[in-house]
């Protein structure tokens, strides 16, 4: 079901609007503190700002309208899965998953049937009778997912579902989510572009409490129009002309000292700028360059490149490979 959530939370410096269409998965992409969790809390009803508007399935179902209308979290067909699995200790895994159906008024037996089914779908049927406090982090997050799904939410909210998991467990969880989220309406907050790239249909980029950019996954991640988005996806972003952008990958940019360039050279695909920052990435040096038209990133081999390029402030010239896509602003 379509979820439309807009809110202004001055004490957290957040003012944003997010919408997710029915059956799609929206990734809220942004670093910690960008306001992603705040928006999820408003949608779930855990936060009640004075200025907020949340509807479900169009304007007919209002979950929250400023101070005038308010549906408490347990009455909202919205379930939030937090980054910490927060399983209820003192209950078995099965009863944790059966908690939602039970709270909805179903009998113990029926609820456990539902729970067993969901545990099976997340591949955790074998630990149904285990005590919740004995699970590993990855297992616990699977169970928490099953518990959230068992409430049959109209919209499932996932708050950094992989943040607390180690690399292996996060990988398994990502694979699992890519299958179980297929037909659901989902909003997932994440700071990791990979999550957005693998799981989302649409992406909203959040920056300093506001929406920086929104669109389909391919559009936002492949054709960023905001320098912040470009930085998140690890690309440069420069204007080719007044109405065209290009966002080359670091491998698609080559660097030279500006002094080495023939003076007459003003090729269209060359930008002049200064080195802003240098980082080591595996066996390459990643160099950020400020230009008048935007920022560029280039990977250079520190063994063969002139070392002066690796000094912040050095005047450099960047050449973008000719096959890099340009797109309208």
């Amino acid at each position: 079901m379509r979820l439309d959530c807009s809110a202004s939370v001055p004490e957290r410096a957040v003012a944003a609007r997010i919408t997710v269409e029915s059956g799609r998965t929206l990734a809220l992409l942004g670093p910690n503190g960008s306001g992603k969790s705040t928006m999820l809390e408003v949608a779930a009803g855990l936060l009640r700002p004075a200025d907020a508007h949340v509807t479900l399935g169009g304007a007919d179902r209002v979950l929250c309208q400023d101070a005038t209308a308010w549906l408490p979290p347990h009455r909202r067909p919205v379930t939030l899965l937090t980054q910490d699995p927060s399983l209820f200790a003192g209950m078995s895994v099965l009863d944790n998953v059966a908690f939602g159906p039970r709270a909805a008024g179903h009998g113990k037996r029926a609820s456990r049937e539902v729970a067993r089914d969901w545990l099976d779908r997340v591949g955790a049927a074998d630990i149904a009778n285990a005590h919740a406090s004995t699970l590993s982090g990855g297992q616990a997050q699977r169970v928490a997912l099953a518990r959230a799904l068992a409430t049959r939410p109209a919209v499932l909210l996932l708050d950094e579902p992989f943040a607390a998991l180690d690399v292996d467990a996060a990988g398994h969880m990502r694979t699992l989510l890519s299958t179980v989220l297929a037909d659901l309406t989902v909003v997932m907050s994440t700071h990791d572009v990979l999550d957005a790239a693998m799981l989302a249909d649409d992406v909203v980029v959040m920056h300093d409490g506001a929406v920086a950019e929104r669109g389909t996954r391919a559009e936002v991640l492949g054709r960023p129009r905001h320098s912040f988005t470009a930085r998140l996806v690890g690309r440069g972003l420069v204007r080719v002309d007044a109405s065209t952008w290009t966002a080359p990958r670091p491998s698609q940019v080559s660097l030279r000292l500006a002094a080495d360039l023939p003076e007459s050279s003003t090729a269209e695909d060359t930008w002049h700028g200064t080195v802003a920052r240098v980082e080591g990435h595996d066996d390459v040096a990643r160099v950020w360059v400020d230009t008048d038209a935007g920022d560029l990133v280039a990977d250079v081999d520190p063994l063969i490149i002139d070392r002066r390029i690796l000094t912040p402030g050095a005047a450099v010239a960047c050449t973008v490979a000719s096959d890099v896509e340009t797109y309208p602003a």
């Binding site: 855990l46 979290p73 347990h74 939030l80 200790a89 209950m91 709270a103």
Partner: peptide
């Protein structure tokens, strides 16, 4: 934290109090 989780799972205040909160501080 657990009360918030229970609420988003659809548990009303009474269910949350008896099945989650008091169980945790038993």
């Amino acid at each position: 934290r657990f009360e918030a989780v229970a609420a988003t799972l659809g548990a009303g205040p009474w269910t949350t109090l008896t099945r989650v909160t008091l169980r945790r501080v038993w």
